[in-house]
Structures are given as structure tokens and as C-alpha cells.
Design a protein around this nucleic acid. Sequence first.
DNA 1: GCCGAGCATGCGCGGCGCGCATGGCTTCCA
DNA 2: TGGAAGCCATGCGCGCCGCGCATGCTCGGC
Lengths: 311, 311
Amino acid sequence: MEMQQVRYFLALSRTLNFTRAAEQANVSQPALTRAIQQLEAEFGGPLFHRERARTHLSELGRIMLPYFESIQTQTEAVKAHAQSLRKLETARLHIGAMCTIGPAMFSDLLLKFSRDHPNVELQVSDCAAGELLERLADGKIELALFGLPEGPDLRFHAVPLFKERFVVCVSPEHRFAQQNVVRVRELHDEAYVNRANCEIFDLARREFRGRGAFVRQVFTSERDDWVQGMIKAGLGFGFFPELSVTDPALVFRRLVDPEFVRTIMLVTVRGRPHSPAVGAFIRQAKSFKWPSDDNYEAMPEDDPLEALAVA
Amino acid sequence: MEMQQVRYFLALSRTLNFTRAAEQANVSQPALTRAIQQLEAEFGGPLFHRERARTHLSELGRIMLPYFESIQTQTEAVKAHAQSLRKLETARLHIGAMCTIGPAMFSDLLLKFSRDHPNVELQVSDCAAGELLERLADGKIELALFGLPEGPDLRFHAVPLFKERFVVCVSPEHRFAQQNVVRVRELHDEAYVNRANCEIFDLARREFRGRGAFVRQVFTSERDDWVQGMIKAGLGFGFFPELSVTDPALVFRRLVDPEFVRTIMLVTVRGRPHSPAVGAFIRQAKSFKWPSDDNYEAMPEDDPLEALAVA
DNA sequence: GCCGAGCATGCGCGGCGCGCATGGCTTCCA
DNA sequence: TGGAAGCCATGCGCGCCGCGCATGCTCGGC
């Protein structure tokens, strides 16, 4: 059974006349005749009763008709859908975001992109860094929002978007709240509330120890709301990307000597051809005016609160 | 877009490996590769990302997949259905019956056929003689139960099943009820209750007049129950096929000088190939022992009541 | 009895889908 | 680090098949 035969069958079932069906299908009458004969041989019985002016579907043909119509419908639908995708009329863009990256910085970009491309459906899923790269490689997502001190390996291509400092986050009653900045060595023996999903803290802890700062880890959770709740309750300090501190009752202070910074990047698979929607998103992300874009470098190291007021 | 391409696409979407997909589809790997390339050219974008061990569906491919699966499903379904029809596993038999033919004589045949061919669905529709032949010619029905004094024209093929007399039908109080038979000339000036659907009465009326019998038509209805009700009420006499007198309160008497007889026939379209179900039905109808089969010819003309007792 | 409509058939051609062989590229492993 | 193996693309020639053209066959209508 071939597509041609389906088309010819449907044309004939409409016209009930081999000659006119052939005209509709843009083939010669013998070609259509033989195609129908083939179908009939395949199905083991006549699909039409040939009776000159009274040619009509046989019982077998009547039964087969809905199937052929369904096949034809699906075939046209798949072509139409492909056509609309080519014109970016309808598309889906799967974006993965590391779960430590909050929506705050991206909502404006996503909103703008969504308005400029109303037919592109955005789908954001979050996961840990390792899983993110795996899903990117598998093609389950086309783009990843990635934020670690170093970019991913060479399989991937990364567009840096902006940098984000890590801060120490405490309750207003904590002694750190009285300082402008917190130095790493001051963290020694402090109670530490851990975010289980924080990919960077293992690196940071080594850095801390190199400076003689050994923290006491007193709590761990995968959930940022629980972590922030415990910090607010005074359990200890937290180590957060600046933009991930969402609880307004918390106080955060810059961590210095040394500073910890991560770069938020837009990551794709190197060498993989991407859809128009991906290209459009990357262009827009590159040209987007990120809030900290032009004043982060100029931020005075000793007056973090003023700098933070900008963001 | 060709059926092969659909099959190849689905094989590849399962294996995610061109070589193994080609094996599944029983073609060489280059053949499958080129088929996929054609599809991609037609759809204007890649369906798969080729990445050695990580080959996977592209976004476009993921969107197209359900369509292709649907097409494949329908294609398999149509083949399976054709296969089951060929084996008479499932079939429908459309039978048309002239509305003047009651079910009484056929219920046994239909019951037997239905039990012998449990997968054949019988569908009986009734209509007038002219419409019957038209629907037969159009292929809307495969078989017709036909009952007129003469068979249909040469376009059709008729298998006679049995003969049926026409009778005069009256209320028990009518004077005809006192007679064994009614002669046509006795009908002169009698009140006649007409069955609108009776195709034969126009012929009979001419015959009556040739014998000097002019009847007074006092009532007409398409519905046999109304007609029989009026006769029972004593309005007049009716002209019925013997087996169509269903009201037990009515009396019927043979009409003679001349007799009117119709032959009940099984009619098909001449030269039209018919399905196994039609063939099976005709064979069974021919071999069926019709109640009046062997004693109708022997029926004594002057003792109709005895003969009728047989039927 | 001629003519036209309607479908089937004979025939030769051209395209295309195929397999085979091979090439480019990467990954894995010794 | 070089060679082998896996994976996909490409070049090439062949053979099938679906096509159009021409024609045949059989009805039905004037």
C-alpha cells in the first residue's frame, strides 16, 4: 500500500469515475486504474464495482474508505504542522535551568521573547548541573541556564550572560548583620546551614579550609525555603548566590577574601544545528540589558550595600 | 512522503541507530539514510540529531513522531481489517426486502444463516419495488427479496424461492367468509380497502375490470395494521398476499378465476461479483426447505382451507 | 449501426530506490 | 599513539516499477 494508491482511491471514491479521478489526481487514467487494481489485489477483493455510469464502492471499499481518509488526514496534518514549524509559527523551546538559578533575572527576558514570538511555547524545567548537561546532550532540552564558576566541558558552547556574587545570608540578629562585608576567615567555627543542591559549596569549603575557616554544618535541605527558614530562625549562616535570597526577612552581606562569583551562561550543544527558535532566543539573550551588566565591574568592594541597591 | 519513509522513520525512532534501524526495516543502511534525508528535506529541517552513540530525535522529529505513528497504525489496521474480511471473519450483508414481504417466512432462514456465520452482520431494510432495484444497482444493498408476478429486468438475476397466493381478506361477518373461495367477478361493486404499497393491485385491478368487476375503493393506507383494522371493522374486503395477513381475527379466502400468484425471489445484480457472505446466503436460501415448497403445486383448487392449513 | 463513454491492456521509457563499495569521522583500546 | 571498529554519508550502476501513449474491448444512446 503506497501513498499514491491512497490518494487515487480517495479521488475515485469521490468521483466514482476513473477518468475524472485520474484528472483530479493529475495522472493518466491507466495509471490510476492499475493503482486501484494493485490495492484490490493486496486486499483480496474488489474495492469498486465497475459499471460504467454506475461505478460505485463495493462493500469492501466502503469499509476501507474511513481508514484511507484517516491516513490522508494524518498525512496532510503532518505536512501542515511541519510547514508551520518552518515558519516559526508554532514551536516549543525547552530550556533547562539549574535549580540554584532563580527566575528573577530571567522573567523579563522570557516575557520579552514570548511577546516577540507569540507562537513559541516556552518550557522551563529545572535540574542539577550534571543532569542538565545530560539532558542537553540527549536533546531533551535545547538550551540550559548554567551557573558555575567554570563553564561546562568542550562538548558544549556557552554564552556568558552576567556574573553573580555569592553572599553570606543571616538573620537580622546575627552578628554578621552588623558588618558591611564578611571575610572568609570570620566564618571559622560558625554554624552553617547547607543547601543540598549547591554545586559550588564543595569547592568553596576547600577554599575556606585553606584560609583556616572550618564551618560547622548544622542543617541540610534540598529546599531553599526550608534552608532560608532555618537561617531566619537563627540556626546559622547560609551561603547563597546573591539573587537566590528570596526571603525579605533575611540579611545578606558580601563575602570577601576571597570573593566567590559565578557566571550565568546560556549553554547549547557544540556543533548541533538548532531550530530558529533557539537562534532567536540566543540573539535576544545576548542583546538583553542584564541589570548588573555595566556596573558590576565598577562596584566598589567596600560598599556592597550601595552596589546591591542597584540590583 | 511515502509509506517506506514512514516505516523507516519509525524504525529509526525506536533504535536511534541507522544501521540497526535498517536491519529492522530489511534494507541497507544507505537506503534508510537517504529516505530520512528525503523526509528532512521535505519537512525543511532535521528529524534526528546524528551524534554517533547519542543519535536522537530532534524537536521537529519529536513533533512528527505521533503523526507517523498514527499513519502506521491506520495502515496496519486497514490491512488487518481487509484480512479478516477475506476470511469472512467480519462482514455485513445488506438485504433489502419489499415492504409487502413479511418476516414470517424468512426468520428461520435468517436465524440459521446467522448461526452458521456468526461474524456476518445481517442488515435488512425494506422499501418499495422500484427503490429496491435502484439501491441494488447502486450497491447499497447486495441482495433483495423481491415479490412480483414477474421478475425484475435483465440487469438482475433472480433466484425463485417460493410462490405465494393472493387472497381476499374480510371480517368474519362479511358474506365472503361463508364461501370456500371468492371468484373475481364476485368482487364487482364490493367495498375495497386498499394497501397503498401494494405494487400488484394496479395490475390486478385491470384484470378485475376485464372480467367486469369494478370495485369501490373506500380506504387507503400505507400501513398494513390500519388496513387490517378497517377490514376487521367491516369496512370492506382487502387484497393481500396470503402470508401478509397477520391479524388472527381476519378471515381470508382464495381468490380464483383467475388466481393471482407472486413469486418471492432473491435478486442480485447480474454479473456483479459478490462477497463470500452473499454467496453463502444464496446457497443457504436455495437449499432451505420453504414451507410451501413441495405441496403448493399439489394444492387442490377447490379446497383452499385444507391447503392453507399446511402453511 | 455508428459513435462516444468508460475502463483495461500492451509497450517502451525514465526516474528512483536499491545494494555494494567506500570515505570521513569519532571513539575505544592496547 | 596508532590501529580497529562503529557510525553515518556518498558515489555508482542496476533493475524495477510506475508512468504516459496508444489501443482494445464492451456497453449504451441516438
